[in-house]
Write a protein that binds this DNA or RNA. Structure first.
Lengths: 158, 158
DNA sequence: TATTGTTATACTCTATAACTATA
DNA sequence: TATAGTTATAGAGTATAACAATA
């Protein structure tokens, strides 16, 4: 007890939106990992499977466009899905350069299990928001994301 | 133009808080990286330097507690700071196991430059929020983070 | 020539485990 | 014995560049 050496200060960090976004995102990630033993899907992988459910026969390029990731990032992830029997990759007839991706029955089943956990986490978050706040939160996050992306791409164009 | 093959759907993802947190955080990270050429500090590294400014002579363990990272994650980051002349690490007199960390003048200067960019990014985000919304956003993020951490640690305790 | 996808490679962030030195 | 810090190592997530196949 002699040992509590002044509460350390975080300085201006707690007042930053960016810092709090990072903390919330990290908490969401860790929480989901903790409540999904035996599922072994990251949030990003869950997003990919969700996309494939909504867009059967999507190409890999369609995925990279939807999520803003590089094709070289995606390939090995899909290798893993394929090895685990969660998806099939077939050469598309109309353009034999592209892969037509599909969830297997096992992929759909795992996605359903994961979605239940994700939605339980969403419920947990919603439970600490007042009526109407959740919609406001989503809307604000959307606006903030758009503002940052717009400015970044404008800055990149000099 | 014959080529727009139906808008792909993201399914339920855009309705999830978690998905939007991830997107916003990633946008913040990328944006900051784009507007800080020549500074070479990640958001996490900026947090560390900010902490050291607010807590001179802090120990490494104090930092790991404040940010929830492992000591083995921190050591190499501090090696980098030290090599770049941003901090000093001295053995503490009162307990020679612990390091007393301090920003150098160069560290303070780089931190000040980075903080200006961070606060410009904050202003960009604030600009798309209505009066009062920023405080609401910070408060909601805080509540959500707390709810997730509480549930995760409760679940971990069986 | 341009596009789709794969692979080699590398960098960052994170952790666990084994270690040294101090307490 | 317990704690502070370092180091070896590994795994996830990301990217760039070079490549093969196809358009």
């Amino acid at each position: 007890m002699s040992d509590a050496p002044d509460q350390p200060s975080l300085g201006p960090l707690p007042g930053y939106i960016g810092y709090n976004l990072r903390r919330a995102q990290a908490a969401s990630f860790r929480h989901l990992d903790a409540v999904t033993p035996g599922i072994d899907l990251s949030p990003g992988q869950f997003s990919l499977l969700t996309f494939l459910e909504a867009n059967p026969d999507a190409s890999q390029t369609a995925i990279t466009r939807a999520f803003g990731i590089d094709k070289s990032t995606l390939s090995p992830v899909l290798d893993g899905f394929s090895r685990r029997g969660l998806i099939t990759r077939k050469r598309a007839a109309h353009d034999r350069r592209t892969n037509a991706l599909r969830l297997t029955a096992a992929g759909l089943a795992l996605l359903a299990r994961m979605r239940a956990r994700v939605e339980a986490q969403e419920a947990l978050m919603a439970a600490v928001l007042e009526p109407g706040e959740q919609e406001r939160l989503l809307d604000m996050l959307q606006r903030v994301t758009d503002a940052l992306e717009t400015d970044r791409t404008a800055a990149a164009a000099e």
